[in-house]
Design a protein around this nucleic acid. Structure first.
Lengths: 193, 193
DNA sequence: AAGTTTGTACAATTTAAAGTGTATATCGGA
DNA sequence: TCCGATATACACTTTAAATTGTACAAACTT
């Protein structure tokens, strides 16, 4: 049955597999799979696509395309591109894997740190009130103090996450984990082969 | 209404908030929220808990506890602890935030790299067959070559992810992004205050 | 101004994930 | 060997996320 497939169809099949693979990876990143399909469609088209073309390529509704592209532009992994003589919105995508990884990774974690720092602040205030309440027994005060220590430790942890985010966002990560294997490694590799 | 709450209840309320916060964070990590509630319950109990106690603390079914604890032990963020004279399984959890982050983060990404490298290998084989097919036109061959280049680039990217995972797993990340702010920063901070 | 084209709001549907309850296999003690 | 206690398999229900279709508003054309 596969034998009957034309070579063109086989190439299409490979592209489809890659597309699904990227889609699956998006799920692992914590984002909708459809984002991956959109990236693949635009990449293989080799040009900016409009919503109708994307719906066509992904086999999904135009509504969904609208939703997903909005999400993607909000994360800066897609952007509108002006196309002469067309009223439609055309979209291009970030094609650098590494940058896409960094962008999505940092967007997610920034959200986490912001949310948590807010909550920790509220918790701290709440604990302070309890601690300073005139009816607070020594036991109550001790417990409140424990929880405040926890909260402080938690804040330090989220500040660490913030610095991790900064490490990626600034591209400094490539200093410590380069895209290409080190030259020494390359040499060693060559000798072995 | 809040005014009527006893101080003890207020402390409980704070703990509950923290528990929900951790639960929410687990979702952001890409894991079930319940994992966070389990971590909080055991942490606040200050000792290993059994499935019934966990169901009690989280307000969930024992079945769910069984499922979640299995998942947690598989990720090495929970483990069984022997408790004298009890037939029940008691569980403790990793209490170091940083370690939990690293463990979950690396588990997720390791899975991703393994999955992708497998797929890329298959794709490479498929493309090779197409390329070497006697009926392949120059256009077909050129396209297959392009896709092979893509695949190679993709593999290099996942190897980079693997090295990122290794950076965290080996704890080397703390060399570049220390838990505690640097001494210089500390000093600067002191002077400002 | 009337008629098109386009994108998206909104409610409804589908699909996938989380969680439950009953039934059962396994184990340790009498 | 039987009994009670425990964890989990499995099928079912609930909840949340992804996706669609219809309707409409804004912008563009004539």
């Amino acid at each position: 049955m596969n034998k009957k497939m034309s070579l063109d169809d086989q190439l299409e099949h490979v592209k489809h597999r890659v597309s699904e693979q990227i889609a699956e990876n998006m799920k692992s990143y914590g984002y909708p799979a459809t984002i991956g399909r959109v990236i693949a469609a635009i990449y293989y088209a080799g040009r900016a696509l409009d919503l109708d073309e994307l719906a066509e390529h992904t086999g999904m509704s135009k509504t969904r395309m609208s939703q997903v592209l909005r999400e993607m532009t909000s994360y800066n992994i897609a952007e509108k591109e002006f196309v002469k003589g067309s009223r439609k919105d055309h979209y291009t995508v970030e094609e650098d894997y590494y940058q896409t990884f960094i962008t999505l990774f940092t967007a997610n974690w920034r959200e986490v740190t912001i949310r948590n720092k807010k909550i920790e602040q509220k918790i701290m205030e709440e604990l302070m009130e309890i601690y300073e309440d005139e009816e607070a027994t020594p036991e109550i005060k001790a417990e409140a103090e424990n929880l405040m220590e926890d909260s402080k430790a938690s804040i330090r942890y989220f500040e660490w996450i913030e610095r991790i985010v900064e490490l990626f966002d600034s591209q400094d990560i490539f200093k410590y984990v380069p895209k290409d294997p080190l030259d020494e490694d390359k040499k060693a590799y060559r000798f072995k082969n």
